[in-house]
Design a binder for these strands. Structure first.
Lengths: 231, 231
DNA sequence: CAACCAATTTTGGATAACCAAAATAGCATT
DNA sequence: AATGCTATTTTGGTTATCCAAAATTGGTTG
């Protein structure tokens, strides 16, 4: 059994690689995302390399091996299924489940996890719209536009919000932009670095492109009604 | 936050003291129940004493302080609520939930625990009939007879099974002696150290008094029907 | 090219748990 | 009182993680 420390290292490397074109992750980045000193990362990573979980080149960064990737995906699967469970079954707020899942993901057994999966009806995304990896194999990747770069004057459905901070998630929720809600992009100004949005049946909001980039959308499916909730 | 190691030490001391007339627990016993070397226990217990969680007398054993007791009860509460949850919501078998809960009890937050408690309708015993301590304060203790010493030829309802081994629990289940079932004590032989039982609507079973002592019963309430399940 | 910088690695050290095996204490028995 | 036994404590040592601060490296820049 990998320790929860090991699981966290692998998870962070996986997530960073997803977001960065599958490059090798620099040690400094890893230290930052794990909140540990750089030297700590160097020695831990050497151990992970000995265990065949990562490929490490001194001063060249780390990369997951296939085996490391498999483990990272399992951790992510646990994390996201737990999040979904906490929201759907225990009715926690989607803004707070990330931290809860952070602990539970290291403690839950396969058996319990599969029961939860079944109870939830085998969902494929978590409450933030993040894909839940299958028990084995890789998650299919969706191509999603973000509110920072999708066409103006069109209506989209929020599919995913890429940020785990309670603050941002609550803001998104309050504006009626949680996953499942529909939104129209009213205007976008490059010079002001801002977008103005009109969430379905709501006051318009203007936000910076940096924030808008964290909200991913897909075309509104023909029939399905929006899942927006009244706050 | 106490580490899960600390939580386990306190929990074991608490459980042992319950079963042994609140005496001080010998270090050897503690080493046994935690599956660690005796020397390890000595040094850990010294640390617990420094943290005011136990009262330790060299060669005299350990005892929980009020603070240690409070912590132990919290751990036990988490453990038993989780067990109940695993059986009621995730439909695991009562014989296997102990080990699952053993891990989860150290990872779950107060918030999630309270949600689970509410979802379950604030139960006061777990699937084995063990009392679930309240969020604060002590559990009320029930006076229960065991099948090893209750009157013969009377019918009782199984209230609690004091053993966490999968093997014994499955045996109990198969004989129709799970908590909630009714049973009649047909005979008891002191010389043979055995009791013969007739679980409601079942074949009679004979077991040693050591085993019978682990099955606690209460009088059958006037109206409530038995909760025996068909296997 | 020399000097500098930022990122990384090394070094020396800490803490929480753990073990094996030697030393000791308390008790019981000769 | 001497012997012995058992439970316990001590001692010396290990592993996983972590940190701070010094040393190094690779690249950048005047």
């Amino acid at each position: 059994m990998p320790s929860s420390t090991v699981e966290n290292y692998l998870k962070q490397i996986y997530l960073w690689q997803q977001d960065n074109d599958f490059q090798r992750m620099p040690m400094g980045q890893l230290a930052l995302s794990l909140n540990v000193a750089p030297g700590t990362v160097t020695s831990m990573v050497k151990a992970l390399a000995d265990a065949q979980l990562v490929d490490y080149t001194p001063r060249g960064g780390v990369q997951l091996t296939p085996q490391g990737t498999r483990l990272a995906l399992q951790v992510l699967r646990r994390h996201r299924l737990i999040e979904k469970f906490l929201v759907e079954v225990l009715q926690l707020d989607w803004s707070e489940v990330h931290d809860e899942a952070e602990e539970l993901e290291h403690a839950i057994s396969d058996k319990v996890l599969e029961r939860i999966d079944a109870l939830l009806g085998y969902p494929d995304t978590d409450p933030h719209g993040d894909p839940i990896p299958p028990a084995e194999g890789h998650p299919e990747s969706r191509e999603l536009a973000s509110l920072a770069d999708c066409p103006v004057d069109d209506t989209f459905r929020v599919a995913r919000v890429i940020d785990q901070s309670v603050e941002f998630l609550q803001f998104v929720d309050q504006q009626g932009l949680a996953p499942g809600s529909d939104v129209t992009v009213e205007s976008r100004s490059n010079s002001a670095q801002a977008v103005t949005l009109r969430p379905a049946g709501r006051q318009a909001v203007t936000m910076g492109t940096a924030a808008a980039a964290k909200i991913l959308v897909s075309p509104v499916p023909a029939d399905k009604p929006s899942a927006a909730q009244t706050p």
